[in-house]
Simulated scan of single mutants.
Amino acid sequence: MATGAGGTQALEAVVLAAGTGSRFGGGKLLAPFRDGVLLDGALAAAFAGPVRDVWVVTGADAEAVGDAARAFADRTGESERLRLVHATEHAEGMGASLRTAIAALPADAAGAFVFLGDMPRVPLAVLPQLADALSAGAPAAAPAWQGRRGNPVLLGRPLFSRLLALTGDQGARAVLQALGDRLALVDAPDDGVLFDVDERGDLNAVIPDGR
C-alpha cells in the first residue's frame, strides 16, 4: 500500500457510485452479483490497489449504496480504509461526483485512482503498473487494451485543480485528452479495463469465466 512513508507515493482510490443506472432500469450497482452486489467488483479492485483509503462517492440510492459499501468492507476486513462521501449535485453527472471526491481527499494525496462502480472485471495486475508510471513522472496513467484506453485511470495531484473545475457528465476525459502523449498508457492483461455493465444482460458476460 502506498503510505507516503519512505518516499513512496500517498495514493487514494475513488469509486464513483453516484449514478442512477437508468439504462439498467435503476439500482444497477445493487444488482445481485456473485455473493454480493455489482458494486463489490469495483470495491475489490480499489482495495487491492496500492492505496491508503477507498473513497466511495454516493448520489442516487445513497443510503443503499453506502450500506452495500460498508457491508463489503466489513466482510473483507477493510472497514478502517473505507470512506463515504456524498455528491449532493450528482444529478449533474460524473463531473460533480469527481469534483466531490477530489475535494474530499487528504492534502498530502499524491494521486487518485478513479474506479467506476459498474466495472467489476478490472485486472488487479495493472494497478501497481499505473502507480509506477505516476512515480516515474507521468501526470496521469491509464490502462489500455488493444489500443483502447480503459479504466481505472490514475490522476496525479497537479491535475486536481482541473478536476475540481469539471462540469457535466464527461468525467476526466477532457483532462486526459489535453495531456496528449504525456498520458502514460499501460498495457492491460485483458479487456476488463474496458468492460462495464450498462444493461442487465451485461451481467451474463462476467459470469462464465468466473471473473
Rank of each mutant, 00 (worst) to 15 (best):
P120K: 14
H90C: 06
D198W: 15
F47Q: 05
D61A: 07
E63D: 10
V197Q: 02
G150A: 13
T20R: 13
P152W: 15
F72L: 07
A2F: 04
L194P: 12
A10I: 09
R75A: 10
A104I: 12
E12Q: 12
E78L: 09
M94R: 12
A184S: 10
F195Q: 07
R149L: 09
A107L: 09
D209G: 13
D53E: 11
A68S: 08
L16D: 01
D118R: 03
E80A: 10
M94F: 12
L194V: 14
A71Y: 10
V14I: 13
A73I: 08
D190E: 05
D209I: 13
G7V: 10
A138R: 03
V114F: 06
A174E: 11
A96E: 04
G117W: 03
H90G: 04
R173C: 03
A17F: 04
A172Q: 07
F160M: 06
G137A: 10
G137F: 04
A5E: 14
F72N: 01
V57G: 01
A42D: 01
A91Q: 12
A110N: 13
P139V: 00
L124N: 11
D202K: 02
A107S: 11
V175I: 14
V57E: 01
L194C: 14
A109D: 03
L82A: 14
G36E: 02
F160Q: 08
L105W: 05
L164G: 11
F115C: 01
Q146I: 15
G168A: 14
Q170H: 06
P32T: 11
L84F: 03
D40I: 07
A133G: 03
A42S: 15
G25A: 14
P143V: 01
A46N: 07
D132F: 05
A184T: 07
R173V: 13
V186I: 13
D40R: 04
S79H: 14
A133K: 00
A44T: 02
A109C: 12
A172R: 02
L127S: 03
M94L: 12
G93H: 05
G137T: 10
S161I: 08
F72T: 00
L38S: 03
L154R: 03
L16I: 15
E63L: 08
G66L: 06
Q129T: 12
F115Y: 08
A138H: 02
A69H: 06
T8S: 11
A44Q: 04
S22D: 13
S161C: 05
Q129R: 15
A104Q: 06
V85R: 00
T88Y: 09
A73F: 06
A96Y: 01
R148D: 12
A45H: 09
S135W: 03
M94H: 13
L130F: 15
A144N: 03
R149D: 05
A68Y: 00
A188W: 11
G111D: 02
A62Y: 00
V122T: 02
